[in-house]
């Protein structure tokens, strides 16, 4: 299931990189614990549980309690990584995330597993496309959306010592590696993957590889597209956004999330305040119909062709 990229490129399930990294962290940092909601298997935490049986707290199917318990564990000196399917973590326990984690400012890492539409055919109840909008409304939470295994590893390592509330997506939908191995991890900073002068594509998560593919297509048509990987949704790298607004003729944003309140909204809020520029916001416009994750991404134009079309419109 790797619709956004050309076939033949190796793709990865970021949950594997995440689980390996968490175990590595736990071996050297006794504060690291995992809290989950009957989601040991789906979060790929079986090995962690076997190695650290006392440090995996499975509360059962009870997400409000899960988040409250993680706040209490932080109070007791631990660093909880809460591993739970994104929709149930952010939706079911939203008030707990607001009051117990963000407002308390506890160092808890909320890990939205299998986010976006990766549960495809299971339908909108199991899609986590609202998470960016909901978490962005909580100003104290850092929102990370790693695009590939390297960013997932780096994000988890940084989160373990960040001493603040964090929400990070842990992707299930297989993605190619898009981050050069020698890249230094900088939370809060956009990563420029392709320089360009005509138009800017600001993508996040699974859409980053699509943005790179789109830039190749645009280049073949004489359009120079800048590609930014915006892993940190909040706080937004406003400097990178405003540089794009000033130096190129328009901005396309692309995310596997609802178009109201996510990355596109964040970028629009920034440019409208400081340097208004033409934009196209690509994302999910409404509850998805039935279909696999890759079908749905194509259905909503969340692929290279969709980005090319939007960028071309901005150049008109």
């Amino acid at each position: 299931m790797s619709a956004p990229v050309t076939s033949g490129i190796e793709t990865f399930d970021c949950r594997v990189a995440f689980a390996e990294t968490l175990a590595e962290l736990a071996r050297v940092d006794p504060r690291i614990v995992v809290v989950c909601n009957d989601s040991v298997g789906s979060s790929n935490m079986n090995a962690f549980q076997k190695e650290f049986p006392e440090r995996l707290i499975n509360v059962g199917i009870a997400e409000q309690n899960m988040v409250g318990v993680s706040a209490g564990l932080a109070n007791g000196g631990f660093v909880p990584f809460v591993c739970c399917a994104g929709p149930f973590l952010t939706g079911r326990a939203l008030e707990q995330i607001k009051a117990d984690i963000a407002y308390n400012h506890y160092h808890v890492v909320l890990c939205g597993q299998s986010p976006g539409m990766s549960y495809g055919e299971l339908g909108p109840t199991h899609h986590s496309i609202e998470d960016f909008a909901w978490m962005r409304a909580l100003t104290d939470i850092t929102i990370l959306n790693p695009a590939d295994p390297k960013q997932t590893r780096d994000a988890a390592r940084w989160a373990a010592q960040a001493n603040r509330p964090i929400y990070m997506r842990v992707g299930r939908f297989k993605v190619p590696a898009v981050t050069p191995e020698d890249t230094v991890f900088e939370p809060g900073r956009a990563l420029t993957l392709r320089e360009g002068n005509d138009v800017t594509v600001i993508a996040t998560g699974v859409l980053v590889s699509c943005a790179l593919e789109a830039a190749d297509i645009l280049a073949s048509r004489g359009i120079s597209a800048r590609v930014l990987n915006m892993m940190t949704i909040a706080p937004l790298d406003e400097a990178a956004v405003l540089a794009a607004a000033r130096e190129t003729r328009g901005i396309v944003t692309a995310e596997e999330a609802i178009i109201t309140g996510g990355l596109g909204s964040a970028v629009a809020e920034t440019v409208v305040r400081h340097h208004p520029v033409r934009m196209r916001i690509l994302g999910v416009p409404h509850f998805a119909p039935t279909g696999s994750a890759s079908f749905l991404l194509d259905h909503f134009g969340l692929n290279a062709d969709g980005i090319v079309t939007a960028a071309t419109e901005l150049m008109a």
């Binding site: 707290i57 409000q64 309690n65 988040v67 409250g68 318990v69 993680s70 706040a71 209490g72 564990l73 932080a74 109070n75 007791g76 000196g77 631990f78 909880p80 008030e95 707990q96 009051a99 117990d100 407002y103 308390n104």
Partner: peptide, 21 residues
């Protein structure tokens, strides 16, 4: 120890603190 106000939040946090111990 915890910012409370919305009801039903204190006991889960207390359970977490007790597990931490």
């Amino acid at each position: 120890e915890a910012n409370t106000g919305p009801l039903g939040h204190g006991l889960p946090i207390g359970v977490g603190a007790a597990i931490a111990a």
